[in-house]
Design a protein around this nucleic acid. Structure first.
Lengths: 219, 219
DNA sequence: GTGTGAGCTTACCAAATGGTAAGGAGCGCC
DNA sequence: GGCGCTCCTTACCATTTGGTAAGCTCACAC
């Protein structure tokens, strides 16, 4: 028997302190990594089990099926997003240069765990119709909130008049996602190792910025 | 027995005329679609066979293994790219507004068959290390050629000085790819049906343009 | 007509997959 | 001590997977 630490009745909400991660958590994390890097179909329960160091059936004890595990992983990602959102928006209103702050937070969210970007991308490709709704719900509020901000900027002449706020934000979001998801491959073309990634990241920020803000009249 | 048309010795280079597609072609096309939409692992030979309307073993008659089929599909895509490249560059030098022409050609290449974008994206995610080399070889020349063009524009002051040409082009390429690959899902958020796609496409072009060209001094 | 060979089919297989059934080990509770 | 519960294991299973073997059939060369 493993994992018989004083962890409370398993299943109750974590009591905030940093505990030894439960087996469920370990499974979720391993599955996340594997789903993200190999895809759902290509990921076997066996592979997840080996990463965690338990038997395949132990997984099926915690999650009734592979699909339920998949759902759990996804829900965790969404939860994380929703928990990060407020912080992101607070950053937005607190800073002078709001947009750059929000944008770097957005990129940071995915860079903090590239599996997030990869997983989102996989979902977009593997289950377009399901993901469409999901994405609408999850990023919809975020989108219209920031879009409003962009529009205000447009009225003030700070933002380019020809920007389509929603479309623009979606493109930026896509860039952030694919940038992180394929960072290893794509940025390697532009330069070896961290240098390439650095250049890619910088250029990404530059593009997002330059295509939003009105050119300063070089007084 | 099927496909016993006057198709010449199978395997010889197509004699240019529009022929009844060979079974090999049909298999390749079906596989392309399935690989692109479901991924390599999730695509079974059985599924390909059903699309084509033959038995699974017929596929294995034409391609020694699933992997060989995969290679064939990829090679076809690369060939197509290489055949389109010259046309793309000719367009570049023939037009006044070179960049916009090249860019729209690039997008058109993927839009002409969204499976191309999806497949590239899959490769990037599923086999990063293999794809890194491949991509370097395939788009390397294209990249440095256009990068040079961007640099010339920079010297003339037409292009923004702070653009990192290679990094910029890669970002734009990524945007084109993901834009097409996830068009259905993402653009649906911005607007229903073709309207959303229209807005997304326009915004994509705008971003690429605005982040490259120097702001016109609004004389 | 008689090979010859490409194109395809039926029959078959070992391996791996997701999932079920049943049972054991350790803990808290009475 | 016995009960019950969670956690996990071994045993097992039907199905599906990519792939092999062998043979049928038609078109064409001779």
């Amino acid at each position: 028997m493993r994992n018989r630490l004083p962890v409370g009745k398993t299943g109750d909400v974590n009591t905030a302190t940093v505990e030894t991660p439960s087996t469920q958590d370990l499974i979720r994390r391993a599955a996340m990594t594997l789903f993200a890097s190999r895809g759902y179909e290509a990921t076997t329960l066996q592979a997840v089990a080996e990463v965690v160091g338990i038997s395949k059936q132990a997984i099926l004890h915690h999650f009734r099926s592979k699909e339920e595990l998949h759902d759990a992983v996804l829900r965790q990602l969404i939860d994380h997003w929703n928990r990060t959102l407020p912080h992101l928006l607070v950053t937005a209103s607190a800073t002078r240069n709001r947009f750059d702050a929000v944008f770097s937070e957005l990129v940071a969210f995915f860079q903090a765990d590239p599996d997030r970007a990869r997983l989102v991308l996989r979902e977009l490709m593997d289950r377009p119709d399901v993901t469409r709704k999901l994405l609408s719900d999850v990023i919809g509020p975020w989108l219209s909130s920031i879009a409003t901000y962009v529009r205000i900027g447009q009225e003030r002449g700070v933002h380019r008049a020809d920007v389509d706020p929603e479309a623009y934000l979606l493109q930026v979001l896509q860039l952030a996602i694919i940038g992180v998801a394929t960072a290893d491959v794509m940025s390697a073309i532009v330069g070896e190792g961290p240098e390439g990634r650095e250049r890619s990241a910088r250029e990404l920020a530059r593009i997002a910025h330059a295509s939003l803000f009105s050119p300063r009249p070089v007084a």
